[in-house]
Simulated scan of single mutants.
Amino acid sequence: MPASIDVELILRTIDDATRDWKQKFQTTTNELLEDIGQLFSSCVQALIELSIATDDNEKSKEDRLNAERIVSKLKELRYSLGNLWPNSMNSFGRDIFNVDIYRVEAAEFFQPVPFYPNDDFIMKLYRWSVYNTDGIVIYRYYLERSEMIPGQPYYVLGRSESSGHTQIQPYGTTIPDYNQMKIHVIDDLKGQGPSPIISLVYPSSNN
């Protein structure tokens, strides 16, 4: 793993926050929001560094496993706080990387979020926001989950832009790992991915 990342210390810090914040706070105060922001800022930086390499050597695999350990702890923290958790914070930063001229900021939702308001047929699990050199979002990719048959989820990587929504990469009934999806986002941005499966013109999700 990167020399600057002490994963065990990060995990202990999250555990301490899980215990201490429930004892210290009875309502969602500004102090709690600041504490959450500081903790997540350091965790996101660690996740970025642990996710840099996309190859399959043993070190990269270990880094990605450690990233998932941090993600799991952050989700435990969120659910342990219950109603103390700010309603506006439904995701956390997962990665930041560059592809040619584009800057990509990835986020993972704490729990699946409807792609469209009040419609849970398509749910979002991850989001990649793609910025051009002017700092404007030109694409958003999502890991999407739908259920044509109840109890049988289907996962696909989709891309949203102003003209509509395109399915880029199907994953079937098994949720892919983050690295696999990152590679597919990079390939699509470079024009090296597969041809779109379905391309539809309808309103895109904005967040």
Score class of each variant (00 low, 15 high):
residue 35 D to F: 11
residue 35 D to W: 11
residue 35 D to E: 15
residue 35 D to R: 09
residue 36 I to F: 01
residue 36 I to N: 00
residue 36 I to G: 03
residue 37 G to P: 09
residue 37 G to D: 14
residue 37 G to S: 13
residue 38 Q to Y: 11
residue 39 L to V: 08
residue 39 L to C: 05
residue 39 L to H: 00
residue 39 L to Q: 03
residue 39 L to Y: 01
residue 40 F to N: 06
residue 40 F to Q: 09
residue 40 F to E: 11
residue 41 S to F: 08
residue 41 S to P: 05
residue 42 S to W: 07
residue 42 S to Y: 07
residue 42 S to V: 04
residue 43 C to I: 03
residue 43 C to S: 05
residue 43 C to N: 01
residue 44 V to W: 13
residue 44 V to H: 15
residue 44 V to D: 08
residue 45 Q to E: 15
residue 45 Q to I: 11
residue 45 Q to T: 14
residue 46 A to G: 02
residue 46 A to K: 00
residue 46 A to E: 00
residue 46 A to L: 00
residue 47 L to Y: 06
residue 47 L to D: 07
residue 47 L to P: 01
residue 48 I to K: 13
residue 48 I to M: 15
residue 48 I to C: 11
residue 48 I to H: 09
residue 49 E to V: 12
residue 49 E to C: 06
residue 49 E to P: 05
residue 49 E to Y: 05
residue 50 L to Q: 01
residue 50 L to G: 00
residue 51 S to G: 06
residue 51 S to F: 00
residue 52 I to F: 07
residue 52 I to Y: 08
residue 52 I to D: 09
residue 52 I to C: 09
residue 52 I to A: 06
residue 52 I to V: 15
residue 52 I to H: 12
residue 53 A to S: 14
residue 54 T to E: 11
residue 54 T to K: 08
residue 54 T to G: 05
residue 55 D to F: 05
residue 55 D to Y: 04
residue 55 D to M: 10
residue 55 D to Q: 13
residue 55 D to N: 15
residue 56 D to L: 05
residue 56 D to I: 03
residue 56 D to H: 04
residue 57 N to P: 01
residue 57 N to E: 08
residue 57 N to L: 08
residue 57 N to Y: 02
residue 57 N to D: 09
residue 58 E to Q: 14
residue 58 E to N: 11
residue 58 E to C: 09
residue 58 E to G: 02
residue 59 K to G: 04
residue 59 K to P: 01
residue 59 K to F: 14
residue 59 K to S: 13
residue 59 K to C: 10
residue 60 S to V: 01
residue 60 S to F: 02
residue 60 S to N: 04
residue 61 K to M: 10
residue 61 K to A: 11
residue 61 K to T: 07
residue 61 K to V: 13
residue 62 E to D: 06
residue 62 E to C: 10
residue 62 E to M: 15
residue 63 D to M: 01
residue 64 R to M: 05
residue 64 R to Q: 03
residue 64 R to L: 07
residue 64 R to D: 05
residue 64 R to W: 01
residue 64 R to N: 00
residue 65 L to H: 08
residue 65 L to K: 12
residue 66 N to E: 15
residue 66 N to T: 11
residue 66 N to H: 14
residue 66 N to P: 09
residue 67 A to M: 10
residue 67 A to F: 06
residue 67 A to V: 10
residue 68 E to L: 14
residue 68 E to C: 07
residue 69 R to T: 15
residue 69 R to M: 12
residue 69 R to C: 10
residue 69 R to W: 08
residue 69 R to L: 13
residue 69 R to P: 05
residue 69 R to H: 12
